[in-house]
Deep mutational scan, measured.
Amino acid sequence: MLDDRARMEAAKKEKVEQILAEFQLQEEDLKKVMRRMQKEMDRGLRLETHEEASVKMLPTYVRSTPEGSEVGDFLSLDLGGTNFRVMLVKVGEGEEGQWSVKTKHQMYSIPEDAMTGTAEMLFDYISECISDFLDKHQMKHKKLPLGFTFSFPVRHEDIDKGILLNWTKGFKASGAEGNNVVGLLRDAIKRRGDFEMDVVAMVNDTVATMISCYYEDHQCEVGMIVGTGCNACYMEEMQNVELVEGDEGRMCVNTEWGAFGDSGELDEFLLEYDRLVDESSANPGQQLYEKLIGGKYMGELVRLVLLRLVDENLLFHGEASEQLRTRGAFETRFVSQVESDTGDRKQIYNILSTLGLRPSTTDCDIVRRACESVSTRAAHMCSAGLAGVINRMRESRSEDVMRITVGVDGSVYKLHPSFKERFHASVRRLTPSCEITFIESEEGSGRGAALVSAVACKKACMLGQ
C-alpha cells in the first residue's frame, strides 16, 4: 500500500517536472537572447534605426563620474514606483581627507489618484512632500541643488532636461508624456511658492545606482535594477552614441532593455503563462523582457503555473481556492519566502493557508518547484541581457580580458534567497573573457542622484555659470 502511494507521488512529481521543464533555458538559448539583445542595442544607438529599435539606448548626458572633490548639501528625489523618497545628502571631506556622503531620508507613498490623475496632481503632491521634508529638517530658507531620480523612459536633451516617452509600472498621470519632466517639477514648486529649489540633474535609477557604486569602486561602469521592473545602464564610447554629437570619451546610456521583445525577438521563448500575464497587464505587448524578470510579474506567473497544475490534477487534489483564482493573489514576496523555507515546509504551508488552501507535504514541495522554475528562468533571462552589455563593452574597448564592476539594486536581487547566485553564475558562463565584480548599492537611487548633481554643480562652477 505504502509502495503504491510512494509510486503515485513519484509519478505525480515526474509529471510536474515535465510541465515545469518549459521554463528551462539551455545555454544556447541564452546565447541567442544575448546576441539578439546586442543587435537591438546597436539599432538603438544608431541614428537611422533608433526610432524602430525596441531597446532605445537613451543617452543620459552623464559623462563624468564623481571624483571626490564636490562638497555641499544636496536634496535628492526618487520616483520610480508607488513609494517616493526625499533625501538630504551631505557631501563633504571625511576623516583623513576621505570623501564622505551622509544621508537623511523619508519615504512617502503615492496615492492612487496622483498616479493615475493628471501630471499637475502628481507633481503638486511631490512638491508637497518636499515642503514637508524641508519643514522637518528646518531647511526651507536654503535654496538647495536638487537631483531627481526618475525611473521611467526619458529622452534627455541635457542633464536637466528630459522628455517622458511613456509611463510604465502602473503610472498613468495624463499630460506628462511628451513633456519635460524637470519643467513639470519646477512648475509645481513655483505653484507652491513656499520654498526654492535648483533642479540641476535628472537621472534614471540605473544611472543613480551606477554612480553610487562608483563611489565604492571606481571600476563600476554598469548599473542595473532588478526590482519591480528590470533595466540597466553602462558607459558607452561616445563615438557609438549617434544621437549625441561628439566622439570623445564616454557617456552613460540608459538601455531601457525592459522593452526588448516588443518587436518579436522573444516570441519563441514566451510561454502561455507569459501571454496571460501580458494580456492582463496595463501595457499589453510592451516591456516583454521586463515581464519575464521583474517583481511586478513574478508572483503572478507562479500563480498561473499553480492553476495549470491544479487543472492537471497534480496539486491540491485538483481544487483551487477562490483566493488562488484571484489575479495578483500570489505576491512576489511569497516566491522569495517559499524558496527561503528551511525544509520543514512550515513557511510554505503558512503562505498557502493564507490563500485558503490546506496543502499536503507533496503540495508544498511542488509549489516550491514552481517558484524555483519561474525565478530561475528570470535570473537566466536577466543574465543574457547583462552578458550582452558586458561583452559589447569588452569588444568596443578591444580588451582581451576586461575587469568590470556592476552596481545592482532592486528588491528581487536583494531579497530573493537564490536569485543573485543563479544570476551571477549564468552571467559568468556567458562572459568567459571578463572578470566581473557585483556590488549592491546602498540607498543607491538617492545618493547617486545627489552625486550626479554634485558633478553638475562642479561643472557649472568651472564653466562660470
Rank of each mutant, 00 (worst) to 15 (best):
W99E: 05
E372H: 02
N350C: 02
M57L: 04
D29P: 01
V101M: 08
D198V: 03
M121W: 08
R303Q: 07
H380T: 13
R325H: 15
E237R: 11
L451K: 04
V401R: 06
S445D: 11
R85Y: 15
R275E: 06
L304S: 10
S263V: 15
S396Y: 04
V91Y: 05
K291F: 00
S127Q: 00
R5N: 09
G170C: 14
N180P: 12
V244E: 08
A449D: 09
R303E: 00
G81A: 15
K161T: 14
F316S: 06
D198R: 04
L352H: 00
R303N: 00
A378R: 03
V310H: 13
D400Y: 08
G246W: 04
E95W: 08
A188Y: 04
S441R: 02
M381C: 11
E442M: 04
S212L: 01
Q323C: 13
F171A: 10
R429Q: 11
A114T: 10
E177T: 12
Q219G: 08
R191V: 04
I404K: 06
K161W: 07
D132F: 08
M197K: 08
M210W: 01
R429Y: 10
M238S: 05
H317D: 15
D363G: 01
L122K: 14
F133D: 00
G388K: 00
V101I: 15
D344I: 02
F334L: 15
G407Y: 00
L184M: 15
M462I: 06
M202Q: 08
H424A: 12
S64A: 15
D247E: 11
Q465E: 06
C434S: 14
S64R: 06
V86A: 08
H50D: 04
S131K: 11
E443M: 11
H317Q: 12
T405E: 07
L451Y: 07
I110C: 14
E300L: 00
E17A: 07
L30K: 03
E279D: 15
Q106N: 14
T49G: 04
C129T: 06
T103P: 01
L415C: 14
D311K: 02
G193L: 05
D135M: 08
G410V: 07
V241F: 04
C220A: 15
C129D: 04
E27Y: 07
G258F: 03
R250W: 04
G117M: 06
G178L: 12
L20F: 07
Q106H: 05
D3K: 03
E248C: 09
M462H: 13
I189T: 06
S64D: 14
K31V: 06
T431V: 10
E331K: 15
G385F: 04
V16I: 11
I189K: 05
P59Q: 03
G385A: 13
G97C: 07
H317M: 08
E95L: 13
G229H: 02
Y297G: 05
E300T: 00
L20P: 01
S263M: 15
L276C: 13
K136L: 10
G295M: 02
V182S: 05
G178T: 15
K31Q: 10
D267A: 06
M107A: 14
K15S: 15
G261K: 00
K459S: 10
K169S: 13
F316E: 03
F148T: 06
R447A: 14
N83P: 07
E339A: 04
A201T: 00
V412F: 09
M107Y: 12
G294L: 08
M402I: 12
L306C: 12
E300A: 01
L47Q: 15
R186F: 05
E14R: 05
Q239C: 13
A232C: 08
D274E: 02
G407H: 08
Y215K: 02
V241Y: 04
D158K: 09
E372M: 15
M381I: 09
G388M: 03
I211M: 11
D124L: 03
E331L: 14
Y413A: 04
E236C: 03
Y61Q: 09
L25A: 07
V401I: 14
I126L: 09
E48H: 05
G94Q: 13
R447S: 13
G92W: 07
I211N: 04
H380S: 10
F23D: 01
E52H: 07
G223L: 01
A425Q: 10
Q219C: 15
G162C: 02
E237C: 10
V16Q: 03
I439Q: 09
D78L: 06
R191Q: 04
S398F: 09
H380E: 13
A320C: 14
T361W: 14
F23T: 00
V389M: 11
A10I: 13
G227I: 03
V86E: 05
Q106M: 10
L2A: 09
S281L: 02
V222R: 00
Y297F: 12
L306H: 02
R429G: 13
F23P: 00
E265Q: 00
L292Y: 10
H137D: 03
S340K: 05
E372W: 12
E248P: 03
E112L: 08
A378H: 02
K458L: 05
V367D: 02
T49N: 05
K190Q: 11
E93T: 12
T206Q: 07
D274L: 00
L58S: 06
Y273M: 09
N254M: 14
D262Q: 14
Q323I: 10
F316C: 14
Q323V: 09
S127G: 09
V182W: 09
F423H: 08
Y215E: 05
V222A: 06
R250P: 12
M197P: 12
R358L: 03
P145R: 06
V401Y: 10
G178S: 10
N350M: 05
G446E: 15
G264R: 06
E95N: 04
G246R: 04
Q106W: 04
F195Y: 15
M57Q: 04
S353L: 02
G318Q: 02
R186T: 05
L355K: 02
M87E: 06
K296W: 12
R345L: 12
R368H: 05
V16L: 15
R333M: 12
H156C: 09
E312F: 13
N283R: 10
I293A: 08
T116E: 14
Q337R: 09
F423M: 08
L45K: 01
H141V: 10
I366G: 02
M210Q: 00
R403F: 07
T116D: 15
A460G: 13
V16W: 15
G246Q: 13
G72Y: 01
G162A: 09
W99I: 10
S360P: 01
I211C: 01
E27T: 05
S418I: 08
S212Q: 06
E248D: 15
E435T: 07
S411I: 04
S321P: 12
T209R: 03
K172E: 13
G72F: 03
S426L: 11
E51D: 04
C364H: 03
Y108S: 02
R327E: 06
E40V: 07
E17K: 04
V207Q: 14
H380D: 12
T118W: 05
Q347L: 12
R275Q: 15
C129S: 11
K32P: 01
R7Y: 14
N254G: 11
S396T: 10
E443D: 05
E221V: 05
T255F: 11
A384H: 00
H156A: 07
E268N: 07
M462C: 12
I189F: 13
T118R: 13
P59C: 00
L58E: 11
D4L: 03
V62H: 12
E319M: 09
R369M: 14
N179C: 14
I351C: 12
M402N: 08
L79C: 14
N254W: 05
P111F: 02
G97I: 04
N204K: 01
R46E: 07
T49Q: 05
H317K: 08
T362G: 02
E128L: 08
K13D: 15
F152K: 15
L315F: 01
N283I: 12
E128A: 04
M121V: 15
E96V: 12
V427Q: 03
R447E: 13
L185Q: 01
G299E: 02
S131L: 10
D344F: 06
F316A: 06
D73T: 06
M210Y: 05
R377T: 00
Y234V: 01
T376M: 06
E40I: 02
S453L: 12
G178V: 13
L315V: 12
A454L: 08
A320Y: 04
I390S: 02
G80M: 08
M210T: 03
M235Y: 02
S100L: 10
V310W: 03
A173I: 07
F150Y: 12
E242L: 02
V408C: 12
F195N: 03
M37D: 00
R333Q: 05
R43A: 07
T118E: 12
Y297M: 14
I225N: 12
M8R: 07
N180M: 02
D160C: 14
